[in-house]
């Protein structure tokens, strides 16, 4: 194809997206669109999969059967979300094995929030309430994104995600209304998860490299700063309601803006964690790669069994 032909195709492509038409797997798309989607969607899938680890840590130690079944169901949902997203990404021509390879070698990133440790039961509450809360704010606009398979996967994810946030908030509420020690545990979890949750919504708009192009492709509908403000405005009253204090001395209501002003985010910490120096980066990858390697014989055995069954069937047919 000549350069001129490609430019013309690109123009038609941009117009389709501007008209809110969806792009489907076999449609022509610019290389950059394909690559950007593979990167974002696979990182999203990886985040769901790695996101199971911090919570899986508490399943056996949940304080009641009610909490245990809920946490188990939530972690199972995260596995499901990872699978929806992996299969949607595969429609762009990358194999599952390639994506795993990228995750396991550190070539692909996942959400940095999962590189923080879950040291108390209250962390299960804080993750559901704050981390899933921030994730929902990020994900809801993606239900309308331009790539059909991604948008459809996100609709399923968002439908399921709201139970996650509620179960987390319920844990926090219960602890905040409990003994002084329980309340302290809840406050401590909020203190540790608040700032990383704000960072989860991405670098500030002035340094974010992907925003403009992503807006055009509807991979992003609101800027990181807008999403972060939305998260803060919605979460602060929830903390007040259960008597917990947001760990930000500069946080205060701004009447004029109709929003909360908030303190400086420690972006050095964010970049340190992104670069692999967070408290749990090594541990998470070790757990993930270990699970994959220890599961190899199961995957191989399943294939061997399927082949044996198929051969037996074919023999019978002869």
């Amino acid at each position: 194809m000549s350069e001129e032909q490609i430019r013309s195709l690109e123009r038609q492509f941009d117009e389709r997206i501007a008209r809110d038409e969806k792009i489907e797997p076999k449609d022509w798309m610019p290389d950059k669109y394909r690559k950007t989607h593979i990167r974002q969607m696979s990182q999203h899938a990886h985040s769901e999969i790695v996101g199971m680890l911090p919570e899986g840590n508490w399943i056996t130690r949940a304080p009641s059967l009610r909490r245990k079944v809920a946490l188990l169901a939530k972690v199972q949902d995260e596995a499901g979300h990872g699978l929806y997203l992996y299969s949607a990404t595969e429609t762009l021509g990358i194999s599952r094995e390639e994506m795993y390879e990228q995750l396991h070698t550190g070539k692909a990133k996942y959400s940095s929030i999962f590189n923080y440790p879950t040291i108390t039961w209250a962390d299960m509450g804080a993750i559901g309430w704050l981390v899933d809360g921030a994730a929902i704010i990020n994900q809801v606009p993606l239900c309308n994104t331009s790539y059909g398979p991604y948008a459809r996967a996100m609709i399923r994810v968002c439908k399921e995600e709201s139970f996650h946030q509620r179960q987390g908030f319920e844990i926090m509420m219960k602890l905040a209304n409990g003994t002084p020690e329980q309340k302290e545990m809840a406050q401590d979890a909020l203190n540790r998860w608040w700032w990383p949750s704000l960072m989860m919504l991405g670098p500030t708009d002035d340094v974010s490299v992907h925003t403009e192009q992503s807006m055009k492709w509807k991979l992003k509908r609101k800027s990181n700063d807008d999403l972060r403000q939305q998260f803060i405005d919605q979460t602060v009253p929830q903390a007040e309601l259960i008597g917990l204090t947001i760990p930000d001395p500069d946080l205060k209501w701004n009447e004029e803006r109709g929003s909360y002003d908030f303190g400086e985010i420690d972006w050095d910490e964010f970049w340190q964690v992104v670069k692999g120096h967070g408290p749990m980066n090594k541990e998470r990858m070790k757990a993930r790669v270990g699970a994959w390697e220890r599961g190899k014989w199961v995957r191989d055995a399943a294939m061997a069994h399927a082949e044996k069954k198929r051969n037996r069937k074919e023999k019978k047919a002869v």
Partner: peptide, 23 residues
Amino acid sequence: CGSLHAADSDMALENARDVYTRR
């Protein structure tokens, strides 16, 4: 509703049950 990986059709059905019909 989507796709998944499985060794054979029986496993595909079982996995589809878990992945796509949890609710």
